[in-house]
Design a protein around this nucleic acid. Structure first.
Lengths: 159, 159
DNA sequence: TCAGAATTGTTTAAAATCAAGCGGTCTGCT
DNA sequence: AGCAGACCGCTTGATTTTAAACAATTCTGA
């Protein structure tokens, strides 16, 4: 009845690097769906939560483009997600003196309040899921992910 | 000009476990986009490629539900992706004797042929991106990802 | 046996995403 | 100063994905 016995997830691997990539992607997918289930209880999609969360912990002003790079989505996606969040009164676009091209995006008080309700549950989930990972393991994992992203970027530039 | 100097990706982390999760998700996203760029040159989306690829290496017959579990997408998604692939003549739904509820999905000769063109480039990309990862590192990484998925699943069942 | 529960594939409506392209704006170079 | 190029946010149109509901089918347990 387990997914491992029903599918062939535990068969021997031909290409261990490829299998590593598959595992990263699949794990991100599982994590994302778990998150989505949680966020939905608060009327938020995953994309919407990601925006709110990023805004809460930003340490300087972010334009919509900055947000897009941070979340690895296009500017067009940022626009549509922000439209939804602004409708709900959770974020606001602020005009930037001296630069009429960009908006700085910020949480409203209401957005802050909603996030304060969701975030503890979210962090609790993560803590539970990674309970077996000590700090060193996490740092090592983070560094490996960074290496991969750097390599992908280099690959894209040499194109 | 680098993304790391422009954004705050390298600031000290408050919650190393959470940062690990973010890194996994972000890396999967970057990998997915890199893949999508490649697949598009062959008229395929990422989801379509994933289906073709899974079918090529399956070791027994898979229903659409099996495929969905394997790819971590819903049955509805599988239906729509298969519709597209069937239109293009790359896969086929086969009736299963003795069970009128399910289809077994398979590559057509044409699907096989297309995949044979894309796969070398795909594997080459992956090999390049993970060139700094030896076999042990990969196996370790894979195991960590499996642990995370198992924990997420356990979390979902205790719900 | 056989009625209730579970599973399968599909449909529908909503949301996210993207590429492409648009004007408006800023910057850097001459 | 002025112009070309880069950047920003937005719109459009298309695709993908999902949750939810549905009918058909299969399974299960009393």
């Amino acid at each position: 009845m387990s997914i491992n016995t029903e599918l062939d997830l535990d068969r021997p691997m031909r290409d261990v690097r490829h299998e590593a990539v598959l595992n990263i992607v699949r794990t991100a997918s599982v994590l994302g769906q778990r998150g989505a289930d949680l966020f939905r209880r608060f009327g938020l999609t995953e994309a919407q939560f990601n925006v709110l969360f990023s805004l809460k912990y930003k340490e300087r002003n972010w334009s919509q483009s900055d947000l897009g790079r941070r979340l690895v989505v296009t500017r067009a996606s940022v626009t549509s997600v922000l439209d939804k969040l602004e409708e709900k009164g959770l974020v606001e676009r602020l005009q930037v003196p001296g630069n009429r091209r960009i908006y700085h995006v910020d949480l409203t008080a209401e957005g802050q309040k909603l996030l304060d309700k969701v975030e503890p549950l979210y962090r609790n989930d993560i803590h539970e899921v990674l309970s077996g990972f000590d700090e060193e393991t996490c740092r090592n994992l983070i560094q490996q992910m960074e290496v991969i992203r750097t390599r992908v970027q280099a690959l894209g530039e040499s194109k």
